[in-house]
Design a protein around this nucleic acid. Structure first.
Lengths: 205, 205
DNA sequence: GCAGAAACTTGAACGGTTGCAGTTTCTGCC
DNA sequence: GGCAGAAACTGCAACCGTTCAAGTTTCTGC
């Protein structure tokens, strides 16, 4: 009867353990600060061994960024499934405004945002997390535009877009910053893609 | 004449120790790989204690990036002392082509370049090294253009320029990549600065 | 020449991370 | 139903980067 959804009991328990660890970690980090809490503290609070903790998370920093795993897919989707006639850069701008800005400005995540912003190790880890998707995003962009997978302009655009979160955090008006940065990218991109390029970025204004 | 006359015996010995450590480190890293050499190995080869090693270098990765310290000053100078009529972006492009590209393509540094390129920890450290100058460069750009020190567009331009090394390493034609990326930045920048802005970037050709 | 700073040393420790050997718990299959 | 084996988990010890404390040697300024 407890045959709930699809996954077996084992996977459910595993997920529960992982969740317990992540919860314990966030709780302790928010209360005492990231640097003043040891991995062993987290493991003990979650009632597991440190070995088990590292079986679920690759590093101490990863304990904090629990839920951001499908960034890759979301970015690819934002580019691939953009409205007809919309350019790649505009699709990414829309995605930034709709998906990233609300997260940063969500008051329920103020504690989390402050934790990451005030801990250098976490800031760097977070930025590197974003950058790790640069190759994927660059490849998707190139594919959409019918260019070589390692096209330098596409790689550059991908990295620049992924800098946006780093550029917005800690500013009073993230939305305006996003707009400013994407204006720069949009005009630069149009110029290099060629205004008459049919597969490129201009919605024929 | 900052330091030519009499460095003093003490400072000479200190410099010698530092050099011995850096040499030992590079030698061992190139031979066995960064990850397979411990800090204690390096210290022993240089005939110092690990404590002394960390008195000279802030981290294991810093052992590799021995000589790159005045990047900040060089970047600021490239912007501030650019020829009259030359735009900020163009000055940065020239600096990239003249100062960065030769370093990457220097065959004498092939081993070094391969070491950094093949070791994720070193790649990330190197990129973060560059990014650490983003605030300085952004401030200098803003100052040159008479904007607020935290102007978002200037901050973005600074970060994007500092991505260029990461974008060029590992490519067959770094020079062409630099040109492509700076084309993108140049057009985007001109558009946002306004084509008629006298303090901006267009040499009015 | 002497006081004190600076470079260096030894030794120990801390915290993140991994390896290993063993135990428990679940799952697939006969 | 029961068993083989995989997978989750455990405890422990170790390694590694890094730092601290306390003491020693070496140079420098006066």
């Amino acid at each position: 009867m407890p045959d709930s959804p699809t996954p077996g009991r084992r996977e459910r328990k595993k997920a529960a353990t992982r969740q317990a660890i992540a919860d314990a970690a966030l709780e302790l980090f928010l209360e005492h600060g990231f640097d003043r809490v040891s991995v062993r503290d987290v493991a003990e609070r979650a009632d597991v061994s440190t070995t088990t903790l590292f079986a679920h998370f690759p590093s101490k920093e990863a304990l904090v960024f629990d839920r951001e795993q499908d960034v890759d897919a979301a970015l690819a989707a934002a580019v691939r499934e953009r409205p007809a006639g919309q350019g790649v850069v505009e699709a990414l701008r829309a995605h930034a405004l709709e998906s990233w800005v609300p997260i940063v400005t969500d008051p329920r995540r103020a504690g989390f945002t402050a934790l990451v912003g005030d801990t250098p190790a976490l800031r760097e880890y977070g930025e590197r997390m974003w950058m790790r998707h640069a190759d994927t995003l660059g490849g998707v962009i190139a594919e959409e535009l019918g260019r070589e997978p390692d096209d330098p302009a596409c790689a550059a655009l991908a990295r620049f877009v992924l800098e946006v979160p780093a550029l917005t955090t800690g500013r009073q008006d993230p939305r305006a910053t996003v707009e400013t940065v994407f204006d720069l990218l949009l005009h630069g991109w149009r110029a290099q893609a060629g205004p008459a390029d049919p597969a490129a970025d201009d919605p024929a204004d």
